[in-house]
């Protein structure tokens, strides 16, 4: 799937698109409900609580029960959106995610908020850089990382209609709009945001905008960079990854997550099976992050437009040396 991109100058907190879409869906469908772990303000669900008090469940600070209760709600015909900080939602309730959602196929929509290093200064306890590695290996669980507010809305609408467990990984870091308002999310499809045959930049979430900026800088160096939005982490678009491996000289993966087991890991698995080529995995390199804002930490780990540009050039040099 290929779409036109128009990067907005303004920046948007994707939680606003998340919550407005959730309220709109709840108004139209009595099955839609929200479950939170005290995280009423960090999920921006105060308005939902006021509008739909009978369909708002606050289990308190208790993530195992939050996910288990959501599974029970789903098994009885509700469509629960189970919302909490991704670091706690995934790590504390991982067995419930595996068994009550993935294995039992309960129709729960997990919304992991403030993922990656969005909680910057609060430190590694509050960072969620392992969640992609943990969730994408659970059978039946769809894992999606939207790139902008438009895609966040599209993913929420799709998640309501898709019958089965979904993990939507959201941030609070403001990002530009990239996609047009009529965008429709398709699971298992990478979205080509820019064509190019020298190198492929595969990104997800808040770093997609930076990958596009890097592609523009590479274009100035006469390097054609293909940019794929890999929002659908599971299932992953194997064909798009294999095509990127075949048609370019190397792949750079870019994610606000550990370089182990997430997007980089998934891409490396596919090309190792199908078409080995050089891959540079950008992300958090197997460490707990130091103290600093999310902007500082992204720069610290080279997750900026110029950092991606540099990594792409180094990869092409490596490819040229054979």
């Amino acid at each position: 799937m290929s779409v036109e991109v128009a990067t907005s100058a303004d920046l948007f907190d994707c939680r606003n698109a998340f919550v407005s879409t959730l309220e709109e869906m709840a108004a139209a469908d009595r099955r839609v409900c929200a479950v939170v772990n005290d995280s009423v303000s960090s999920t921006k669900l105060k308005g939902f609580r006021e509008k739909f008090p009978d369909r708002f469940v606050n289990v308190g600070i208790a993530e195992q029960n939050m996910v288990g209760t959501s599974a029970g709600l789903a098994s009885a015909g509700m469509i629960p959106f189970c919302c909490g900080a991704s670091c706690f939602l995934t790590a504390r309730a991982m067995e419930q995610v595996k068994v009550d959602l993935g294995y039992a196929k309960n129709n729960v929509k997990l919304c992991g908020m403030s993922s990656g290093m969005a909680y910057g200064e609060l430190g590694p306890t509050h960072h969620s850089i392992e969640d992609l590695a943990w969730t994408r290996v659970i059978p039946n669980l769809m894992v999606v990382v939207p790139a902008d507010p438009i895609e966040t809305r599209a993913v929420m609408l799709w998640a309501r209609d898709y019958v089965g467990p979904v993990f939507v990984r959201l941030s609070r870091m403001p990002v530009p709009k990239l996609l047009s308002g009529d965008f429709v999310f398709e699971p298992g499809k990478a979205v080509t945001l820019r064509e190019g045959d020298d190198i492929a930049l595969l990104a997800n979430g808040v770093l997609v905008a930076r990958a596009l900026q890097a592609a523009e800088k590479l274009h100035e160096r006469r390097i054609g960079a293909r940019v794929l939005n890999m929002s659908s982490m599971a299932p992953m678009d194997r064909e798009a990854v294999i095509a990127a491996a075949r048609e370019t000289r190397g792949i750079v993966t870019i994610e606000e997550a550990s370089v182990y087991g997430g997007l980089g890991g998934a891409v490396a698995e596919i090309i190792a099976d199908e078409h080995p080529t050089l891959v540079k995995r950008m992300g958090v390199p197997g460490v707990f992050a130091p103290t600093g804002s999310v902007e500082f930490l992204l720069e610290h780990f080279g997750l900026t437009a110029s950092g991606i540009e540099k990594a792409a050039v180094e990869l092409l040099n490596k490819a040229a040396m054979g």
Binding site: G72, A74, A76, P80
Partner: peptide, 22 residues
């Protein structure tokens, strides 16, 4: 419910009971 690991049933049942109330 798919059970086996202990401590899963009561949260799930709580969700079922909440659904009936809703």
């Amino acid at each position: 419910a798919n059970t086996g690991p202990l401590g899963h049933g009561l949260p799930i049942a709580t969700g079922c009971a909440l659904a009936a109330k809703m």
